[in-house]
């Protein structure tokens, strides 16, 4: 401690500490920094009313906001991760799993449900980005495949909201192979003629982008979501030049033809329902 700091009364801190706002009353917009009243934010589908920033959602909140209220029923919820490699870095994989389970309340990084979307039965999955960056290991792959099978066997369209850093390193090659496993399942769904709509949300990169997320009959992106194969940091290190602000954002993908449309979260239900109704040749407009 320097002589100057010793002179200072102890309750005056020279470093600024970040104060956390108690959960549930106010929430700060990560986009513009505005303090937002949480109840109002929730009514607005967690889109900042000031800057339109789409705040990241937990998997469960996502499904709750997407499906008709109280129609969701979880499927394949009993799958739990293992540690086939006894993986250890600075922390053991086992410990990372239990910590992630504690903070998110989920068993792994994907939640799957069946329910109604504007009155129509659908199967929906959503990635939990808070669970180890939404990374795809064996459980995510298996659960996705079960959702696909449920969708195929019951001829109910599939919708997936991705938010993931990619394949989970702690399950190494097992994770990589989930890319093949999920893509193969989607090929059978495609053969059966059941629609699959992929909604890419912030962020979707790596092995998840390079498999299930890019394979929708229709690919939709939320506004300004980061979407790409390699992360921007890796690309920056490779090409050694600063990347433009819009690089790998939804608008960039739309411009380059990688997604069909960008849809505001507040219109997502109607947009997806409308697409599904047309693909399934329903004569009446939905709603």
């Amino acid at each position: 401690m320097s002589w100057f700091e010793k002179l200072m009364p102890s309750r005056i801190k020279t470093e600024r500490r970040t104060r956390s706002v108690p959960e549930g009353i106010w929430q700060k917009c990560p986009g513009c920094g505005a303090q937002l009243y949480r109840a109002e934010l929730e009514r607005n589908f967690f889109v900042c009313p000031k800057c339109e920033h789409h705040i990241r959602l937990s998997a469960r909140k996502r499904l709750e906001l997407f499906l008709d209220s109280d129609t969701g029923r979880e499927i394949a919820e009993r799958l739990v991760p293992m540690d086939p490699l006894k993986f250890k870095d600075s922390k053991r994989y086992r410990d990372r799993i239990s910590q992630a389970q504690k903070t998110t309340g989920e068993r792994d990084a994907l939640v799957a449900m069946t329910g109604l979307l504007v009155g129509q039965p659908v199967v929906v999955c959503a990635f939990e980005f808070g669970f180890m960056g939404g990374s795809m290991g064996s459980v995510v792959g298996e659960k996705f495949v079960r959702a696909v099978e449920y969708s195929r066997d019951n001829r109910m369209p599939l919708v997936c909201f991705s938010a993931s850093g990619g394949a989970r390193m702690q399950e190494a090659l097992f994770s990589l192979l989930q890319m093949a496993k999920t893509s193969a399942a989607l090929a059978t769904l495609s053969d059966a003629g059941v629609p699959y709509i992929s909604v890419l949300t912030d962020p979707t990169t790596g092995g998840v982008a390079a498999s299930l997320a890019m394979l929708g009959d229709i690919n939709i992106a939320e506004p300004r979501a980061l979407i790409g194969f390699a992360g921007p940091r890796v690309i920056q290190q490779t090409v050694r030049e600063t990347l433009p602000e819009e690089f790998q954002r939804s608008e960039f993908l739309l411009e380059h033809g990688a997604v069909d449309m960008i849809t505001d979260r507040r219109q997502m239900r109607e947009e997806v329902a409308g697409l599904l109704a047309k693909l399934q040749k329903q004569r009446m407009p939905v709603g």
């Binding site: 893509s183 390079a210 890019m214 394979l215 390699a230 033809g257």
Partner: peptide, 22 residues
């Protein structure tokens, strides 16, 4: 796969996903 600007512009992830699918 190459992590470059052009590769991203031309859909690196879509190309890989499509191969797995087919």
């Amino acid at each position: 796969a190459y992590p470059g600007v052009g590769a991203e512009e031309r859909g690196q992830s879509q190309a890989i996903a499509r191969n797995l699918f087919v």
